[in-house]
Each structure stands twice: as structure tokens, then as C-alpha cells.
Design a protein around this nucleic acid. Structure first.
Lengths: 335, 335
DNA sequence: ATTCACCGTGGAACCGCTTCCAATCAGGTT
DNA sequence: AACCTGATTGGAAGCGGTTCCACGGTGAAT
């Protein structure tokens, strides 16, 4: 059907080995022969079959990007960073979008076999200890983004610290009744970043001798709508919080929706602080804890490229900073 | 290195053909043998080498998604639609991000060879006539998103109509001095949607006997920052426009930035209408011309799946609607 | 003139799978 | 008992590359 290396060899009157050498820029080809072969390639509009090459070479030039469905802007930002880091190379990213924990396990399992992809980047998703072992044993380079691991390289931020920063920011503004709206702490995909932020929140309350109230902590499914519902519930308490910290910006926006619907002023009646620093946060003038999202993807991809290039892969743990970005949704406590 | 089908065959004491049959669920295997082989597969933790399989089968189970760098939220939304449509299938999307026209051509050229990918989805990017011919000749299914073509299937919206809707909306509000801020009309990637919107704009001005002013039309590089610059230039004219229509929401947000910086009220001093209806538009309460972005990706991916499944690929042209979403950035003309 | 090293080159073997074809075997027919 | 049928099965060939190995030819060294 398609033209093969044999056709080229015949047309150029050389052996297949020689054609292969030309294609792969081997120096062991005379100038004259090279010209002949190149001409034949052009005449036939030949391109090598990548699958044959992959089989023979045992190299795919594919990188699996394993990530949750693109429901959150933070995933997308990270993906952008990956994409741009890869764009200078011959590696192409294949998207493995996971919708359920079963799917995550299926992907991690099959990708841990040799000859599937050359390496993996996982966003906000950790392999189990067993899965990690298989990657290690099979020498498949992996870099985790927004996750920590003691054997797989990763880039991460200190979410406990982030939770602390958010809570302290609110306390500094005079708030004492501070609620936390969160993703499920035992998020089905990995030990959640939300859990660490929660820990920072609890810790900080305690450090400032503020009471922790059961009712001020609610967790639920990700997403703007769910956060809105949770916020309405919180804000209609008999003794509602004067400030709300959410585990991501998307949820914070949901809280803003709720406040608007109830008729509460932000930050007059209630302060809101998010987490992540996605670009949307700027549009709604949201105070937030920012982390380098694009940067995390970019750095992770480069780490993977290094692993791919090096003969002796080395473990690396790369920490990125978090910081408060103060904008218009947090203000002094009036009550 | 890795275990192969031969290892399994040896372990299960059968031939490789039989193992292959078990893997591919061929019915021509006795129950007993099947059990034996399945056990061996499990014992060895065997997974077939996908590259060998692809070579033998001539099928990759890969779909190329060719798209510009993920700079615009509209690309991301479309990608999301693709991803979700593909998530029920065995096909995996490979991202071919294009940063320059040369890169676009390189990708379209190499992907038009058999055995590279099973099919293509292109977002806001058209192949040349010659490239299209090669896809057709080689029977490689392609679906274009946000583009039209007379032989390649595609999903699109009527951007002339969209431009008209936007302009009419402003005219209905009493505006007469209406500017248009645009991507380059001869966008390097394809005949630009912006050009069609421009045409709708011109047309509508004429239909309403309003003069077209040279100075009210500016084009420039994509992006929020550039739009901001262009808007400042426009708004500092001696006789500035009372309303600005932009070729995408991202630019409209840049216009909003400019107005804020200059100290103009929106919509009091100047009305702003965008295009696309990305989720960000809601955050900034932007009036806009909305088109189904997620839907375009979803539908296109399903069209491609049909082409892939059918033995006689058929051309299809799918039009999606546009509509005005009136929000807070447009209001009556006061001057 | 003979030997030797080295450069270019052709082609077989191999990568690991699928599939076709031939062979075996059990059971049913006549 | 001889024959036929259909169900299973083993294994070779083929998919289209890469690479190793052997070989012929050239020019320099002896």
C-alpha cells in the first residue's frame, strides 16, 4: 500500500541498509549515494513507518500525560507548561484522561510495561506503592506533578504552608470565624492537596488559639456549583463564618456566586480566599494563594526530558513556592 | 528484556498463535487452553507490545489533535470536548501543538502518511488544498473544527452572522461609532474567523447606513495585552468609539483592562462585546457572541469516530449556532 | 607485487505481534 | 473399517524498519 524502504532501495538502486543509513543520518554513506537516495525519497514521497521503527528501536517518542478530566483550570495550566516544554523536542504528549480511580489504575498499570511510552507525567495523581515499584523496576521514567513520593521524582508545593498562609491572612484581617470549604479530603485519586491545606488551616487556628468548629468545615465534590451549595449552607448558619477559605479557586468562585445570590457583600459581609492562582482568579478579583501552575508543568516536563536523556536516572524532588496574592475579596472583619 | 508472546507460549505449553488468539478473544480456542494461557499471562504479568501490534495490524489507535499552542481558552474548551468524546473509546489523543505556520505544514505533511495516526482533528487550523488532497488520497479521516472545507468534514459556525449579531446588538443600543478590534485578518494559520466577523461587521454597518471609519478598525497579534494596547489607542482618538466589538473574548477582556486604566466606565462610557462565550466571559460579566466550543470538539470527535468505523467515509459539514449573550458590558449610547 | 587497513555497501537476522495454512484429532457416517 | 467433517492447534510468513556482519574495492605501506 504505502511506499516502504524497499521501494526506495529499488528506485535508488541500493540496499535497504543504505537507505536506512541515509534516513538516520549515519555518516557512513558516500556523498553520491546519499544524493541518489535522497532523490528517490523525494520522488516517492517516502516517510518511514513510525511503528516499524518503534518496534525495531524500542523507542516510541511518546510521553503519557496522565491527568484528571480537564475540569479544573489548574490542570489545564499545568498541561500548558508541559506542552511548551515538549514543543522543542521530538516527544509528543499523549493524553490519558482519567475519570475514575479504576481508570487511573488501569492506565498506571498498562503504562508501567516497557514499550508503551517512553515516560510519564502525572498531574495531581499518584501511583500506588506497587505501581511505583513497577515503574522503577522497568526503568520507566516518571515525574509527578502536584504530588510527593519518596522514589519517584516530582514537583510540588508545601500545601500545609499554603493553608497556613491563607488562614493567617484572614486572621491578620481580624477574622475569627473562618470556614474551610474543601474537596473531599480523601479524594479518590490520591492523598489530596486539600487535606494538607486543611491541616495548615487547623494548625494555624490552633497556633492563634482560635477554636476549630466542626460546622465550619465542609467537604464535597469538586466544582463551582457544589461549592456554591456548600457556601449557602455555611452562610445560612445561625452563627455564620466571617471568612471562607476554599481549597481551590474554582470553589472560591462558587462561594462568590453564593454570596451574590444571598445578597451578602464581599468582602464587607464575608471575606473569601481561594487557592491556586488560576487566571480566572484575576477576573473576579479574588484573593488567593498562588502557586506556579504553568511552571510546575514546565519544570516537570524538563525533569522528565533529563531522565530520558540520562543513562542513570536520578530521583529529584523539586519544591515550588506558594504566596498570598491579595486582591479584592478579603477585607477586615466588621462583626 | 520484557516478556513476549513467546515466553507466554512456552509457559502455557502452546503455540504463539494460540496465545495471540486468546489475547484477541478469538472464539476458536477451547475453554481449557484459554484458561491455561490466561493463567500464564497473569503469572508473567504479560502485556503485548503495542508497537509490534501496530506494525502488524497497521492501526495505531491514536488520533492526532492538531491545534495552536493552548494560548486561548477557546482552544482548551474545544479540546475538552474532544477528550470527553474519546474517553469512551480505545483511541488516545496525541497533541500536535503548532506554534508557527511551518510547524503546521510539517505536521499536516507527515500526518498525511499512512501509519502515523488513524485520524486527525484540527482546531482552528486548515490544511492547504494540496495537503487536503493527500489526506483524501491516503484515506486518512480528518475533521476540521472552526474551519470550512469543501472536501474535508468539519464543524463550524457562521462567523459572518456572528459579526452581524454583535454589530446589530450595539446598533440596537443606539451606538453609531462602533470599533472592531481583531486578530490579524490574514492570520497565518488559516483564513481567519476574525475576517468573517469583520465582514459581518462591515455588512451590518452598511445595512444600517452607518459610515465605516478606517480608524475604527485595528488588527493585531492575539492576546489580552495586545488588545489592551489597541484599545487604548482607539479610546484616545479625538473622536473615540462609543462601543467596541472584539474578535474574541480574550481581547474583550484586554479592552476592559484598557478602559479601567484610562478611567472609562463600562458600559457608561464605552460598551464592549466579545466573541466565543468562554467561561471567563461570565466572570467579567462580558456581553458576548457565544458559540458551542465544548460542543464543537465533542461533535467533531464523534464525527471522526464514525469515519473511523465506517468503510465508506462520507463528507459532512456540521453547522453550529451562534447567539448573543447579553451581560453587563454593553449598554445604551449616551453621547 | 603483495599485504593490510579501512571505507561503503548489501542483505540477513531480528524486533514482537497477527494471520494464514496445514496438520492433528475426535466423533459421526456409511 | 474406511471416510468425512469440523474444531483446535502449531508455526511460518509477513508487517517495515535497524543493525550487525561479511565482502569487495581502494590506496598506502612494505
Amino acid at each position: 500500500m504505502a511506499t516502504t524502504i524497499k521501494d526506495v532501495a529499488r528506485k535508488a538502486q541500493v540496499g535497504v541498509g543504505t537507505v536506512s543509513r541515509v534516513i538516520n543520518k549515519s555518516p557512513a554513506v558516500s556523498k553520491a549515494t546519499r544524493k541518489k537516495v535522497e532523490q528517490a525519497i523525494r520522488d516517492l514521497n517516502y516517510a518511514p513507518n513510525p511503528n516499524a521503527r518503534r518496534l525495531s528501536l524500542g523507542k516510541t517518542w511518546h510521553i503519557a500525560v496522565v491527568l484528571p478530566y480537564l475540569t479544573l483550570p489548574s490542570y489545564v495550566e499545568r498541561l500548558r507548561g508541559i506542552q511548551e516544554a515538549l514543543s522543542n523536542t521530538d516527544y509528543k504528549p499523549i493524553l490519558y484522561s482519567v475519570g475514575t480511580p479504576e481508570q487511573r489504575d488501569e492506565y498506571f498499570h498498562s503504562l508501567s510495561h516497557k514499550n508503551h511510552v517512553d515516560g510519564l507525567l502525572a498531574i495531581s495523581l499518584s501511583p500506588t506503592q506497587e505501581q511505583a515499584q513497577r515503574f522503577l523496576q522497568n526503568h520507566i521514567p516518571v515525574v509527578l506533578i502536584d504530588a510527593r513520593h519518596d522514589q519517584l521524582s516530582h514537583v510540588f508545593v508545601d500545601d500545609v504552608h499554603g493553608g497556613k498562609l491563607a488562614t493567617e491572612h484572614l486572621i491578620d484581617l481580624g477574622h475569627e470565624r473562618i470556614a474551610y470549604i474543601s474537596d473531599y479530603l480523601d479524594y479518590p485519586f490520591q492523598k489530596s492537596a486539600a487535606a494538607n491545606r486543611y491541616q495548615g488551616y487547623r494548625q494555624t487556628l490552633q497556633d492563634h488559639s482560635l477554636p476549630y468548629r466542626e460546622g465550619y468545615f465542609v467537604q464535597g465534590e469538586q466544582g463551582r456549583e457544589n461549592a456554591k451549595t456548600m457556601a449557602k449552607q455555611l452562610l445560612s448558619l445561625e452563627d455564620p463564618p466571617s471568612a471562607i477559605f476554599t481549597s481551590c479557586d474554582t470553589q472560591a468562585i462558587g462561594v462568590l456566586d453564593a454570596a451574590k445570590e444571598i445578597g451578602l457583600k464581599v468582602p464587607g459581609d464575608v471575606s473569601v480566599i481561594g487557592y491556586d492562582g488560576v487566571s480566572e482568579s484575576e477576573f473576579v478579583d479574588l484573593t488567593t494563594i498562588a502557586q506556579p501552575l504553568y511552571g510546575s508543568g514546565h519544570i516537570a516536563a524538563n525533569m522528565l526530558l533529563h531522565l530520558l536523556a540520562s543513562s542513570s536516572p536520578t530521583f529529584k524532588s523539586h519544591q515550588l513556592p506558594v504566596k498570598v496574592i491579595q486582591r479584592g475579596t478579603t477585607g477586615p472583619n466588621h462583626r
